[in-house]
Design a protein around this nucleic acid. Structure first.
Lengths: 189, 189
DNA sequence: TGTTTTTTTTGATAAATATCAAAAAAGGTT
DNA sequence: AACCTTTTTTGATATTTATCAAAAAAAACA
């Protein structure tokens, strides 16, 4: 019995039949609806998720507004990596924004896999590399000034985000008010 | 013959004698002087460095000014991780800011180690985790507004940086002009 | 110690962007 | 289609911060 996520894992790294069998029993798949929280601020991130399809973001409350930090979509590994690695509480939320199919692996199970099947560290390393590249270039983006260049960079680097996120989410991600984003978009159609 | 960096690696992960012996012959140590570039924009990052002691930053040119993105100091792994992982050119520079002692491991040698000694992936995973935590929270920091809160957060999160970096470097890191930083500092002594 | 050079601070002004408020447009619902 | 709700746009103003210029302070050097 092979799930999509096991196939993904096997495409990243060879694992033994024994490891595959254990993993299969550990990894739960589920459909999650828009609006579901995978993580709330104050909690310690207990799982790493693989998003087969869907859309989610990490955000922080600022007054009564959600400020998006990252977005994840098809074939992304989703987690609050700092909280997950250090097993300490985080101050962000992860919310599913479109109905999604995800697979979940708990921190404890992952540690068990590393310990029991040392060769699984190869997968762990590559997963971390993939996650790293997913979220890379974020610090860079928010430093660009003025606001218009920030938007242009986003259009260049993550055009698909423009289809998936609302303009309020994009504005918060780009660290500008919704009105400023609207004005930037009005300028060059 | 054991160097400091081999001891560090062994403290992170057990490696076999054969792996240790090969590693020792691969890893070159050197004293690098203030002003030395470990990476220049346009280049592909070929090495991962371990900084035994010293101080370095990653920066980008903006007009004729250096804008700092990260800082590294004692016991940090230093590299342009995106360029290193993808082996593609980067648009940033890594410059040593204080005389430092570093150890260098090339991308090719690291890949050889992963391939020849699969258990070395355990170290690779933990090194990546450590690097990840070093640079974490950057995207977050630069989104905070107003400028004063950004500074306060830095004081709280990386107080040692205030001793190591010049105020021009800190201002560029916090995405504000040197004058603004000066005014913020004048307010609360 | 005095002199030069660099860095930091201060002041005045300009530019970018946020905020508030209202109008317009777009989407949903019956 | 008509109505309601939400989102987006537009306008006016206020605030934040950058920029430019000069003074003051600190550091480097003779």
């Amino acid at each position: 019995m092979s799930t999509v996520v096991i196939d993904i894992i096997k495409s990243i790294s060879n694992i033994s039949d024994a490891a595959e069998s254990e993993l299969t029993s550990m990894i739960g798949s589920k459909f999650v609806q828009r609006g579901t929280y995978l993580l709330k601020e104050g909690e310690t991130c207990s799982h790493i998720y693989f998003m087969q399809f869907g859309f989610a973001h990490q955000f922080k409350w600022k007054k009564d507004q959600k400020i998006s930090n990252f977005f994840w979509t098809n074939n992304d590994f989703v987690t609050h990596m700092i909280s997950f690695l250090t097993q300490t509480p985080c101050s962000e939320n992860i919310e599913v924004l479109k109905d999604s199919k995800i697979y979940a692996l708990s921190y404890a199970d992952l540690q068990y896999m590393y310990k029991t099947y040392p060769e699984f560290n190869h997968f762990g390393r590559l997963m971390l590399e993939k996650y790293f590249l997913e979220i890379a270039g974020l610090g860079e983006l928010s430093k660009i000034t003025p606001a218009q260049k920030r938007y242009e960079k986003l259009v260049e680097q993550r055009p698909n985000l423009l289809q998936l996120a609302t303009s309020g989410q994009i504005a918060s991600y780009l660290n500008m008010s919704q009105e400023t984003l609207s004005r930037i978009r009005a300028k060059r159609p």
